[in-house]
Design a protein around this nucleic acid. Structure first.
Lengths: 119, 119
DNA sequence: CGGCTCGTACGATAGACTTCGTAGTACGGG
DNA sequence: CCCGTACTACGAAGTCTATCGTACGAGCCG
């Protein structure tokens, strides 16, 4: 049977449970421009994206570090899929914990981007 | 005439203009538990409060440091009034820059406090 | 005036954060 | 099976942060 077994490639990454996510941690994770940018792209695309999708102005080591900060603070979920690691926003968890916060943050970031970065 | 001259005690503190306030800075300022707590009390009282109003578990030096971080990131406004320094939320500026964000953040903090800190 | 309170400034320290480079592991394709 | 790709782990360097202690300046009150 074509069981939809998630092929749990034995490479599991530690994620905080929903109740363990702390607001301070989320804010800290998003207070870095690079990480905020990652989250914005993730939210814009709406689907899971591989790390290499992002073209960040830092080395891969640093990229790994930033993705880990986002994961450890409960902002994103990371799952291996073959050689790629897919990243998805934990929108459901965040919305349950902090209703409306994520949307406000994304709107604020978009607002600011429209004011400064983009012409 | 009893001019409402603000008695500009010649001790003026540098504040960022509204347009200079950066989302990353605000998030960073609020990612510290002590500073988040200060902002929550400020929002709850709704009026300007002196530094000594807060009974924080750190020394006065550290308190000064945290208030400065909040001011330099545009979260609060500080004005001298005699020997006291009054602190007020820059709600108008923040609401203009990031509509709804402050309320979402305060609600999220209250939510979390209800879940963990308070019984 | 003398002292008190409020808050600052400065220096110091320990810890955390960001970034990198190198070396290594896991998966998939020829 | 060997190699390329994707990402990690570890160590190192530099910077930033949080905290403190002590010493100081600015107003208020007796």
């Amino acid at each position: 049977m074509t069981t939809a077994s998630p092929a749990p490639s034995s490479r599991d990454l530690p994620h905080p449970a929903r109740e363990e996510i702390r607001l301070e941690g989320v804010l800290h994770a998003l207070s870095d421009p690079l990480r905020l940018r990652i989250v914005r792209e993730l939210a814009a695309e709406g689907v899971e994206l591989s790390c290499s999708y992002f073209d960040l102005p830092v080395t891969k080591s640093t990229t790994t570090h930033h993705f880990r900060v986002l994961r450890e603070n409960g902002v994103i979920r990371q799952v291996y899929e073959g050689t790629a690691k897919m990243n998805g926003l934990r929108r459901v968890d965040l919305d349950a914990l902090f209703p409306g916060l994520l949307d406000s943050l994304l709107a604020a970031a978009a607002h600011q981007a429209a004011r400064h970065d983009e012409p």
